[in-house]
Design a protein around this nucleic acid. Sequence first.
DNA 1: ACCTGAACACCGTTCAAGT
DNA 2: ACCTGAACACCGTTCAAGT
Lengths: 231, 231
Amino acid sequence: MPKSPANTARSKRAGSQLTPDAIIEASLRIAARGSEDAFTVRRLGEELGADPTAIYRHFRDKDELLLSVADRTLGEVLDSIPEGLDWKGRIRALADGSLAVALKYPVVGSAMASRTTRRPNEFRVVELILGAVMEAGLEGAEAALHYRMVADSLLAYVGQQAAYFLFDAEARAADESAWTREYRLVDPRAFPNITRLSTELAEVADEQIFEATVGALISAIEKRAETLRGA
Amino acid sequence: MPKSPANTARSKRAGSQLTPDAIIEASLRIAARGSEDAFTVRRLGEELGADPTAIYRHFRDKDELLLSVADRTLGEVLDSIPEGLDWKGRIRALADGSLAVALKYPVVGSAMASRTTRRPNEFRVVELILGAVMEAGLEGAEAALHYRMVADSLLAYVGQQAAYFLFDAEARAADESAWTREYRLVDPRAFPNITRLSTELAEVADEQIFEATVGALISAIEKRAETLRGA
DNA sequence: ACCTGAACACCGTTCAAGT
DNA sequence: ACCTGAACACCGTTCAAGT
C-alpha cells in the first residue's frame, strides 16, 4: 500500500488519477462484461480515460496485472464463504464460490486456471483447504497431496467453464447442439452406448456435473482418512 | 475423404501440395515443439512451404483447423489404450493417454480443454467412457451424468497441465518456486496450516496428484453403482 | 514523477490478382 | 481450382517526448 506517498496535486483530469487499485477495478468492470468486451490494454485505457500505455507505469506487464486482478477475485470468493461450516461445507462453499466468481469474470477465471497468483488471498485459500483436509483427518504428505488434488481439480474445472463462457454465442451453440444433433445421428452399430443414452446425455445439467465432481473429491478425502484411521 | 478428386498435375513445387491432411500434420509438428514455436498461421505457412493464407482454402478458420487437429490427437490417445482391460483399467489408460498426448501437443491440449470437436474420434472416446461406466453398473441418467463428470474433469485437468507446459521457462519457474519460497515465508500466526505443511507441499509430485484425481473419479462411480445395487 | 503518442513487431483474416 | 501477396483491423509493449 505505500505506493502513492502523497495525494497532493490531484484531479488535474477527471478519470485519469491512475493507481494500481483503480486499474484493477477498471479491469474487473471490463472482465464482468464477459465476451461482450475484450479485455485488452487499449480497452482498459478507454475505461480509465487514460492512454493505454499508462498502465505500464503501475504493472510490469499484462500478466502481472491479471495476477493482481485474479487475487482480488479470490477475495470475493473467500468473502462468500460463511462462518461455522464443517470441512465438507467449507469445501463445497469454496467450490460454489469459485465457480460463481469465475463465471462473473470469465477472462480472469479462464486465464488463471493454470496459474498461481502467489498473492495474499491465494494464501488464504490454501490455508482454508488445508484446514479442511486436516479436519477430515489427513495430515503431513497426505494432507498436502489432497490439498493439491482439490485445488488443481477445482481450478481446472472452474477455469474450463469460464473459458467456455467466453466463447461467442455462435461457437457455444454449435458445441451445445452437438448432444441433441450429431450425437443422435451416430451409427448405432459402431456406437451402441451413445445411441442408447443419447437422450440422457442431452439432459445432463451443468450443476449436476459440478456437484458430482465436488462430491467425488470430498469422498476421496473421506475415504483416505478412514483408511488411515483404520491402520 | 472425397475432397481431392484427382491427383493429376501434382508436384509443381516441392512442399506446396496442400491437402487438409498435410496441413493437419504440419500443425502437429509445430504443436509438438511446445513453447519453442508459436502455433500461428504464418508459422504454419512456413512449415508447409506455402503462403500462410493458403490454409483458408481448406479450413474455414483457425478454430476449425484446431478442431481437426484435436480430433487427430484424440486418435493417438485411443490407439494407446490396450485391449482387454476392465472398466477401471480403461478409464486409467484413457486418463494417462490423454495427459501424455496433451503434453506432447500442448497448444492443442490447452485450446481444446473447453471444446467439443464433434468429430469421429470424439465419438469413440464417448463410447469408451460410457461403456466403462455401464460396465461399472450405472445406467440411464446416472451413466450419462458420470460420463460427463469423467470427461469434463479429465479434459479440464489435462488442458490445465498443457496450458502450464506452454509457459516459457521463466514464468513456470516463478510459479514452481512459490512452494519453496513464498509459501515458506508466510506469517505462522495467520497461516498455521501452510507453515506446518510447507515442506510437504513442496514435495507433492504431479503424477501423484493426477493419480489421486483419477482415483477419486473411479471411486465415485464405484460407490454410486454400489448404492444403486443396494436399492 | 507520471502520462502521452508514435512506433514496432506481432496476430487472424479478407480479397483481388495471379497461374 | 488453387495459391499469392498486399492489406486491414487488431494485439502487447517500448521509448522518446511532453507536462
